[in-house]
């Protein structure tokens, strides 16, 4: 559904992302992993259309993404940002309803939109603070409301930049289970994530980045190997096999 063809992005003389070629099939869950500054977020923002590639091109459903109208494109892909700051007293429910913006054409929300928003809040267990003011929520609560907003936007492609930030283990699992469910409905999910074990448990495909370049791409078993991990992160790792059959990774104490 998405094709990246030799995508590169440069600011000044600095290449943040370089020569990425990828084909992402519908209904798969992808995780972008790599150290800080590896280019995970930049690559997501390129796919989201927010940044324009310096080289190469990106197609969604065969069509170059910059040829979509903003509103049409917003019905196809949603993007979850890491940082958030809302300075006005909106309720959580209102924030989630903003997800319906691409469908409204300036009209008032219908009961169907309200229903979709409520359902989205329930999926992330955030319906209990639907009427609370968003700026007063804790980091984790606000994260869940944001995820609900993305769900209400109902796109084909979900781009999630560290969706598990600020969340407790229960909600880690819940969010990634949700991603899995979306994939079963033929939606596509791409996340940038730091937790390698969560990535290993849930991802269909991993893309490992370092300095904006793809180091490894494939199934968790192919990507999370001792050599590749220590090359990318610059420390030693131990790789075990989890009873569930996927690699289990932890930094090694030995120097």
């Amino acid at each position: 559904m998405i094709e990246l063809n030799q995508v590169g992005y440069r600011i000044g003389e600095n290449w943040l992302v370089r020569d990425i070629t990828l084909t992402i099939e519908a209904g798969t869950l992808w995780c972008f992993v790599g150290p800080n500054g590896a280019g995970k977020s930049t690559l997501l923002r390129l796919i989201s259309g927010e940044l324009t590639p310096t080289t190469g091109n990106i197609r969604l459903f065969g069509k170059p993404i910059h040829t979509y109208e903003p509103r049409d494109f917003a019905r196809l892909r949603a993007y979850l940002q890491q940082k958030r700051d809302v300075n006005f007293p909106f309720t959580s429910m209102e924030i989630v309803l903003f997800g319906r913006y691409p469908y409204l054409n300036g009209a008032k929300e219908t009961t169907r939109d309200l229903h979709i928003a409520q359902e989205a809040l329930r999926k992330v267990e955030a319906d209990i603070f639907a009427e609370r003011l968003y700026p007063t929520l804790s980091g984790g609560e606000a994260s869940r409301v944001d995820i609900a907003r993305i769900l209400a936007q109902a796109p084909e492609l979900f781009l999630l930049d560290e969706p598990t930030n600020h969340l407790d283990p229960r909600h880690h699992v819940q969010i990634l289970n949700l991603c899995k469910t979306l994939c079963r409905q033929r939606k596509t999910v791409i996340t940038a994530i730091h937790d390698l074990n969560l990535a290993s448990m849930y991802a269909d495909r991993l893309l490992m980045l370092k300095d904006g370049v793809s180091v490894a791409c494939g199934s968790p078993r192919d990507v999370l190997t001792l050599e590749q991990l220590s090359e990318v992160y610059g420390i030693r790792f131990e790789v075990l096999s989890h009873p569930g059959g996927y690699p289990w990774v932890m930094p090694s104490l030995a120097h």
Partner: peptide
Amino acid sequence: LRLAAALNAMSLGESEAYHLGVS
């Protein structure tokens, strides 16, 4: 007045507004 709905999306942030389909 015609900008009101887009301003709502804008309160999430400029790039969020873009991702929601606001020009």
